[in-house]
Structure formats: C-alpha cells, structure tokens
Design a protein around this nucleic acid. Structure first.
Lengths: 215, 215
DNA sequence: TCCAATATGTGACATAATGTCATTTAAACA
DNA sequence: TGTTTAAATGACATTATGTCACATATTGGA
C-alpha cells in the first residue's frame, strides 16, 4: 500500500463516497452535501479537492476510461478473424458495461449538464469511432465488407453500444447480460459481415450459461 | 384562427419562447428568467402556467410526440415489402429528426434531470420497441427474418435511431442528412433482412440528391 | 356601457444549493 | 518538540427556484 498523506486519503474518501452514492442513486441526486456527509470532512472541504461536482465526474471518467480501454484493447487489434474479433470485443464491452453500468450512466448524465464532460465523453467515443472506421475500411480493402460510406456506420454502431449498455445496465434491475450481448453481436456482425456469420456463430453463443439478472 | 383568451396567448408565448431558445441553446442554459424575458410577463407569471421547467418540457414532448407518430405512422404498417417499409420509415424518421433535432435533444437532456420526463421518454421509445418487435416476429413467422431473440435486438435498433439522430442533428452544425439516413438504413436492413438487400437498394439511395448540411 | 366577478400578473419573500474566504486546526518534517 | 506548511471550518455572498398576498386586467352579464 503506497504511503498516503492526509490530502490523498481525503481525496480517496470523496471518490469512494461518490462511487458508493452513484451505485444506487442518479447523478441528478448527488449534491456536495450528500457527497461529503459519509466523510469525516465538512461540505466546504470538497472544494479543496475539486472545483465542482463536474470536475469530480471528469476524474471518475478518467479512471473508467483506463479500465475500459484496457479491457477492450482487443477492439484495436489488427489481426485475426474479424468476425471472431468483433464477437470477443463485444463480449468484453458488455462485461465492463455490466460491472460499471451505473457509473457509465452517471458520467453520461453529468455530460448533459456540463460541456467539459460532454467534450471528454465525445472524445472518448471518438476513439471507438475511429478504431471501428479503420477496421471497416481495412476489411473493405480485403473484400470482407461491402463498399459503403464507413464513418457514419461506425458512428451509429458505437452509439448503439454506448446507449444500449447504459440503458440496459445503467440502473438496477440490470437487464440480462447474455441477451444484450447477443443482440449487439448480431447488429454488428450482420451489419458488417452479413447475416450468415451470425447464424454460424449463434449455436456457440447459445451454449453459454445464462446468468440470471442481478440486483 | 381560434379565439384565444389572454391565458392562452401567454401560454403560447411561453412555449414559443422556449422553442426559440432551445433552437440554439442547450436545455441546461434555460432558466425561468431567460424564458420569460422575451415575454411581456414577468418571471413569476411562468408558475401560473407550468409547475416548473420540466413540466414545460413534458408539454413540448407531448406536442412533438404527435408530430413524430404522425409522420412515422408507416412504421406501424403491417403490409407491404418489409425492406422497402423499413427504408421508407427510416427516411421519415431522419426527416423529422433533422427538422426537430434541437428539441429532441432538449427533451432527452431534460429527461436526465427529471424522472417524470424520463418516464415519458421511455414510454415513447417503447412504442417503437414494441412495433419493431412485432414486425420482427411477424417476419420471422414468414421466414423473412432468421430466428433470434427479438426484443433485445428491437431495443438496440430503436436506441441506435434515437441516439444517432440526436447526436447527429441535436446541435448545429447538423450532420449530413443523407449519410445518416444511409447508415441507419444499412444497420437496420442488414441486421434484419441481410446484407444483400442493402446492396440492392444502395443504388436507389445514392441517386438521391445530396443536400449540404445547414447551420 | 359599466361593473362586479374572476382570471392574470407582480414583487417581496422563503428556501436550497453553490462557491469563497479569512480564520482555526491539524499534519509533516527537521 | 517546535515551526512551517497544508487542510478543514463556518460564516457569508450569490444565484436560481418556487410561493404568496396583493394588485391589476379581462371578461361577460345587467
């Protein structure tokens, strides 16, 4: 455990309090007072660490970004069977969406009320837009994907991911993970590579154990 | 012109002021004061007509709902070539998304900060979820669509529509209408009916005049 | 047309949250 | 341990919301 000064400990307490709060409350119900209540410190101590609630949310997004990019690094792979790659990447994405759903939702909620977070979030999505676009164009060059205007399709596909995950897992009771995963995989694979690939892959997916939705 | 009492006139002024404001400002920047400034009435007069800003937004959603359901009535048609039907329905949806983008975005923004609007919006989306689900299941029964778990796919497809439209047209400069339409049509048709139908239809779409993006 | 009766509008007030600042209190470290 | 530096506090200013008693218009019947 790295040695922490008091400032670091307080900062961590605040971040933990935020995570705890947001796990079962919406961002709109978060106030500085409610955030600092479980802490030893008083309300105004908050402002020593963050300019405002939105700045705290940006910090949370920074943390989540690393976690997401790490766990979906396969998304940016440039070799291997493209269909399996998409399937695996969606699986990873659904996993993390399931685990972090409420925080993802909180960040997107916060983005609506603050243009800086909005910018951060769009920039984050753009990483996936760009990666998807590159993949499409590379596979078009190889004849694996039909010729079409790649950017808007990539854009729509990343948005279906983001908002399906947030709507499905962003608040409890979360929806069934496997069903969401299959739906997203179907949309992506049939849009990019064609329905026949989904059909071929379907039996594999259906064999996966079906977990019941959690609280 | 129907005869209006003073109350009706003031109410209309408020609604117009809101529409005008939201055409080039975000919902987060709307305050009761800024809303009533262009009106003859003072700030507190607002509360005679609406409980709060969110109630005003619900009224706006009611108005928009009628317009959208009217213009996308073809979405709920149960006869005709399914592929053409989807294509036409998406076209209508993109048209209205383009015309009303900023208001749609304002409503979705407002939903994030108010659970009543959120409920209204989800209920509105559910109409499309259900219609899409019925269509899928009907076409599966006819063998036009492969057998798969329809509800989550329908859910993802309505969300790709809503959020693609709002992201693309919700604030100026709006994106290019035809490109968005083609992307959405591609996602829907290849997910439901297969890539070959998109390819066949592509030439038709590409022949459409390409309008430059507006302010 | 005028005059109640009623509907509409107003400004002063209470409330709730944010963010700031001088001051107090606690931690760090030599 | 004592001194320097950092962290926490509580009182205050600010901004927006929503409410209320009262003032002023509008309306429709005599």
């Amino acid at each position: 455990m790295p040695k922490m000064g008091k400032a670091d400990r307080t900062r961590v307490m605040i971040l933990n309090s935020a995570l705890e709060f947001l796990w079962d409350h919406r961002f709109r119900d978060l106030t500085v007072a409610s955030l600092m209540a479980p802490t030893n410190a008083g309300r105004s101590a908050f402002y020593r660490y963050f300019g405002d609630l939105h700045e705290l949310m940006r910090t949370l997004l920074d943390m989540l970004r690393d976690e997401i990019l790490d766990s979906t690094s396969i998304w940016f792979a440039d070799s291997g069977d493209p269909v399996l790659l998409v399937d695996e990447a969606i699986g990873r994405l659904v996993d993390i969406g399931y685990r972090r759903g409420p925080f993802l939702r909180a960040i997107v909620d916060a983005a609506v009320t603050d243009s800086r977070i909005e910018g951060d979030w769009q920039q984050f999505l753009k990483v996936f837009d760009d990666a998807t676009c590159s993949r499409i164009e590379a596979d078009q060059a190889q004849g694996l994907i039909l010729q079409f205007d790649a950017p808007p399709v990539a854009y729509s596909l990343t948005r279906v991911n983001a908002h399906t995950l947030i709507d499905a897992f962003g608040q409890k009771p979360r929806k069934h993970k496997a069903r969401v995963q299959q739906a997203l995989a179907r949309v992506w694979i049939s849009t990019l590579y064609g329905n026949e690939w989904v059909a071929e892959r379907a039996s594999t997916l259906d064999r996966k154990p079906t977990e019941p939705p959690e609280s």
